[in-house]
Design a protein around this nucleic acid. Structure first.
Lengths: 142, 142
DNA sequence: GTTGGTGCAAAGTGTTTGCACTCTG
DNA sequence: CAGAGTGCAAACACTTTGCACCAAC
């Protein structure tokens, strides 16, 4: 899995206005964006940008390992800037809020798998669905 | 979350030939099916069945909690008969094979989350991606 | 007999692609 | 100034829906 070190984030790819804007928006966002939300935000600063450009660059960023793609229980994909620390997601089925969490248990699980099945894990997605404290309250009272 | 007990699996819904066939196929399959694969198998026994019927029934089965829907890193969804025992998935990026596993660590993680965030977890999806033993070998030799 | 379920075709999503034009390097 | 990247529209893959007919209850 040797990977050639990248000199800067775009690794020789051309730095177009659109590409830079998209990358900035993703990194600023902090949270999770889908292609459409990113498109909407990008158009505020670059009204002629097209949705294809958004998709093409998301694909590129993924290849360059600059972003992670997430598959929540929805039809479309979500993206987020590559995490410095691996973390996972709690999705509240009440309000739709996505809460990030991390747990050392996941590392242990990886190790267990490689020991038991000889499987080398390169990427983990943990998605827990349920109800956040707030939604539980409003269900109890409502 | 109160749920009226179901008398039998289809809970008052009509037992059509197609519906029964689809449910049988899913339960026999053991593994993971996508809508198209299910359609293909169903047509072997019921050549006039339509893809819409497959989708409509998958939706119904999901509502009746007879199947689980999975979101591997692909465009379409996979389904499997409701698991008696909660288990999770290893997806090999080399050969595409899906290996099931279970781990007590996941229960612990759930408990930790409810303790730390007051979040009640109703459903968990853990998807680990990487390379199975076989694919590691062929990468090393190839 | 009602009316829920089906098959078909048409529409709806989210995403990708072909092409001519534009701009980076 | 070559060719990577763009905008646009058309194509794509998967899923849902409207409608007329059919069959389970």
């Amino acid at each position: 899995m040797g990977k050639i070190a990248r000199l800067h984030s775009l690794a020789g790819k051309r730095t177009t206005t659109q590409r830079k804007l998209l990358l900035d928006l993703i990194q600023q966002a902090g949270g999770h964006l889908d292609a459409d939300e990113l498109y909407r935000r990008a158009r505020e600063q670059e009204p002629t940008i097209s949705l294809s450009t958004v998709y093409r660059n998301l694909k590129l960023f993924k290849e360059l390992d600059l972003i992670d793609e997430r598959h929540f229980a929805e039809e479309h994909h979500h993206f987020e800037a590559k995490a410095t620390v691996e973390h996972h997601h709690l999705v509240c089925l009440g309000c739709g809020r996505v809460i990030e969490f991390k747990s050392p248990l996941i590392e242990r699980m990886k190790r267990q798998l490689s020991r038991q099945n000889g499987f080398v894990v390169t990427d983990v997605e943990v998605c827990m669905m349920g109800y956040c404290a707030r939604c539980q309250e409003s269900m109890a009272s409502g």
